[in-house]
């Protein structure tokens, strides 16, 4: 994955900036011509910098931005500040009650020490195709609130992931919060992730949300980005037997790498979906 040119495990030099307000942070990003990067939990960015595959001129630490904190429920929606750490999500009774999928997914995200630092906004923004939270956002129909020099905008998670680590966030925008619809009593959820080792990135994972509107199914670890398959969802809506829907998986351009070929990933995605459906909340 990385070409070894020399000793490459100390980050290149950069400015460390720690603005106190959202406006100040955006101004810093905007003035850097895209060379600066926001620092949320740093649990993915720091390794990339240590590998010298990321070499920003400056890191804008978001730690002091009160605007990016907090969990609040507004009727049928719950807003989670981008700088909320995984550990805070797991400790929030409100999140656990409103978003059962979080309780199912969080134990699979790396390990305790990573969850103590990693943030929801960070993982949503990075868009690692094998990460859990972007897929949850798709399955739940989350909305991503972005702030930039021209103000704020809200974008559907469905519109957010554009390619391999590529998102709709502009370099001078920050994710402020993610808004999720609160689970209703008739909603059902399923989650299954296949990893050889606990806490690893998924070889394949599936997230299912079933509401009165039907199924929303998101996959992770299978392609260049987290994704949904509307045709597969439609098939599940009309026939609950998953076997009859699995052929829709071939629409995915599955990733092949040293851990699993594309064909194996397709097979594992089918298993993940099947088991996610078998394990739906009651």
């Amino acid at each position: 994955m990385f070409s070894v040119m020399g000793g490459t495990m100390k980050a290149p030099d950069f400015d460390y900036l720690r603005p106190a307000t959202l406006d100040a942070a955006i101004a810093l990003l905007a003035s850097s011509d895209g060379d600066a990067m926001p620092l949320a939990g740093g649990q993915s960015l720091m390794p990339m910098m240590n590998f010298r595959v990321a070499s920003p001129s400056a890191l804008i630490d978001l730690a002091d931005l009160a605007e990016l904190r907090g969990i609040s429920r507004d009727g049928s929606s719950i807003r989670i500040g981008a700088m909320t750490r995984y550990a805070e999500l797991a400790a929030s009774a409100e999140v656990m009650a409103a978003l059962p999928l979080f309780g199912m997914a969080l134990p699979h995200i790396a390990h305790d020490a990573i969850r103590n630092r990693g943030t929801l906004g960070g993982t949503i923004a990075l868009g690692d195709p094998a990460a859990e939270m972007p897929a949850l956002a798709l399955a739940l129909g989350a909305k991503i609130e972005l702030a930039g020099p021209d103000g704020t905008r809200v974008i559907d998670a469905d519109e957010f992931y554009l390619g391999y680590y590529e998102t709709a966030r502009a370099p001078d925008e920050l994710i402020v919060a993610i808004h999720y619809p609160v689970a209703l009593s008739d909603h059902r959820f399923g989650f299954h992730e296949l990893t050889q080792r606990h806490g690893d990135y998924a070889l394949a994972g599936a997230v299912v949300a079933r509401t009165a509107q039907g199924h929303r199914v998101a996959f992770f670890g299978v392609a260049d980005r987290p994704l949904r398959l509307p045709a597969l969802e439609q098939a599940l809506n009309t026939n609950p037997d998953v076997q009859s829907a699995l052929h829709h998986l071939s629409a995915i351009a599955f990733t092949g790498d040293v851990k699993a070929s594309a064909a194996t990933r397709q097979r594992l995605a089918a298993v993940a979906l099947t088991r996610a459906l078998q394990g739906m909340t009651q």
Binding site: Y16, R18, L39, G42, Q43, M46, P47, N50, L59, D61, A63, A87, D112, A113, I114, N116, R117
Partner: peptide
């Protein structure tokens, strides 16, 4: 009070 990875946190942080 919580466990973190010392290599994934800047001294500045």
């Amino acid at each position: 009070g919580v466990a973190v990875r010392g290599c994934l946190m800047l001294a500045a942080q």
